[in-house]
Structure formats: structure tokens, C-alpha cells
């Protein structure tokens, strides 16, 4: 059975780094990337952006099949872990600060699902993406299908999930899965540059207001989203007075 994955949390100024480590492929041992409380506490330190990346050459090859095989024996326990894993990715998806996936090398299965729960994906020319779950007779269980469909449309998402085919960075860009492709070993630095651009000199309340509005585009209808924007705007005006 594979060894436990480790999550390293680091702060670089206002930017938080979440590093998935289980060298060399960064296999995930549990469906739960990290404990919710640990993640919430890290966010509560006041980070203005979060970058998720893998240690070494790869982002993550996902769950290792051997581990899953032994875990499903205790069905109840596995289901609970899966639910907790889902909570984590939903939390990342709805987080009111920018969350950027910096992807090198392989980004498979649950690893791909983690990347899809981020707001922005930056990868390298040599990066590879896939949902290989189908080869084991299972499917992506952490919301990956839904999130992929939102980016690519149903047809492409169905193909990727049902064939388990691997796609390269160029294809991922073409399908709208990644936002930017960098040269080799440049994804993390590019993510840092982008995170700094977005957060330098910006109060956390403004960052949160922009992210709330952007997340509302998807979650609410136009009319409702705009009502919320008007509320956010009025509150920011009030706050800008009180800080004067």
C-alpha cells in the first residue's frame, strides 16, 4: 500500500502555498486532500491568494489504484472520506480569494479534480491531464465531471471521462481547461506573478468583494447577482469613508 501524502502549507508574504507531496507522482492516499480545519485556519491567517501545486516534477497522479482497492473494503468509511473530500474541493471552489493551480507534469484523477476546483489553472508545455478512473471501472468522484463540463461543455467532458484518454497542455488550452501554458518549470513562478498582480496593494475586503461577485455569476441569476453587487458596492463605499 502506498505511503501517506503530505500537505505543506507555506506563506510567501500575502500569498499562501499549498503543496501536495508524495514523491515522485504525489499520489493521494485519501480522497480528503487536507483536513478542513487545517485549511480553514491557514486561510484565516489572512492570505490574499492561494496557489496549489505539487512537490517535485508533478502536480499529482491522483489516487493510487491499490490504495482505493483496499479502502473500498470499508464502504461506510470510504463514503465518509469521499464526502469530506468533496467538502474540501467545494470550499476551495467557493473561496473568496483567488485560487490558482500551478500544474507541472501529470495531473490525473483526483489531482485533476483538485486543479478543476481552482479559479485559474496554469500549466507547462509538458503537462498532461486525464481522468483514468474508467480503466478501474470507477469515475471521478470529487465533482470533477461537473466542473470539467462547465469548462469544456458536455461532449468533450464525456469523451475525457469515458475514454480515460490523456491530453497534453495544448489540447487542455484549446478546450478551455487551462488558462495559460508556460515553458517547462515556469508554472509556479507564473502563478506567483499573477497572484501578486491581483493582490498587491489590494485590501482583503476588495479582493473578497470581487471574488464574491465572480462566484455569483455562476451561482445566481443575473438579476440576483446584480442585487448582491449593488450591496457589495454600497458597503465598500461606506467602508472607504470610514477608512478615510
Amino acid at each position: 500500500m502506498g505511503k501517506e501524502h503530505e500537505i505543506i502549507l507555506e506563506r510567501e508574504g500575502d500569498i499562501g502555498l499549498l503543496i501536495i507531496k508524495n514523491l515522485p507522482q504525489n499520489y493521494l492516499k485519501r480522497p480528503e486532500l487536507i483536513e478542513m480545519r487545517q485549511l480553514q485556519e491557514f486561510v484565516a491567517t489572512g492570505i490574499k491568494a492561494l496557489i496549489i501545486t505539487g512537490a517535485g516534477r508533478h502536480f499529482s497522479a491522483g489516487a493510487d489504484p491499490e490504495t482505493i482497492k483496499s479502502q473500498v473494503k470499508d464502504k461506510k468509511c470510504f463514503t465518509e472520506q469521499l464526502i469530506r473530500g468533496n467538502y474540501i474541493l467545494n470550499y476551495l471552489d467557493e473561496l473568496k480569494i483567488p485560487v490558482i493551480a500551478a500544474v507541472s507534469g501529470v495531473c490525473f484523477g483526483a489531482g485533476f479534480e483538485i486543479a478543476l476546483s481552482c479559479d485559474i489553472r496554469i500549466c507547462e508545455l509538458t503537462s498532461l491531464f486525464a481522468f483514468p478512473e474508467i480503466n478501474q471501472g470507477i469515475f471521478p468522484g470529487l465533482g470533477g465531471i461537473t466542473r470539467l463540463s462547465e469548462l469544456t461543455g458536455k461532449a468533450v467532458a464525456m469523451e475525457l471521462v469515458m475514454h480515460g484518454d490523456m491530453i497534453n497542455a495544448a489540447k487542455a488550452k484549446e478546450f478551455g481547461i487551462v488558462d495559460e501554458v508556460t515553458a517547462k518549470k515556469q508554472a509556479l513562478d507564473q502563478a506567483r506573478i499573477l497572484a501578486k498582480k491581483m493582490t498587491d496593494n489590494r485590501p482583503l475586503r476588495v479582493i473578497k468583494a470581487v471574488m464574491t461577485s465572480i462566484n455569483n455569476c455562476k451561482a445566481l441569476g443575473m438579476e440576483e447577482a446584480l442585487k448582491k453587487d449593488a450591496e457589495l458596492f454600497a458597503r465598500l463605499v461606506e467602508e472607504s469613508f470610514s477608512s478615510e
Partner: peptide, 28 residues
């Protein structure tokens, strides 16, 4: 100015330019 575009600009920007570019250009 510590404000946000509050009259549909964010929604429209996301619609035309995508979420990543909207986040970058609006926050910056």
C-alpha cells in the same frame, strides 16, 4: 479605489473574457 464595478461589469467581463482574465484585470 477600493471599490468594485457594480453595474454588471463583472458579469459581462466574465462572459466575454473568461473568469481568469476577469479576475486578473478587475483586481489589478
Amino acid at each position: 479605489f477600493d471599490l468594485i464595478p457594480g453595474a454588471g461589469g463583472i458579469q459581462k467581463f466574465v462572459q466575454f473574457a473568461g473568469k481568469a482574465k476577469a479576475m486578473e484585470l478587475i483586481m489589478q
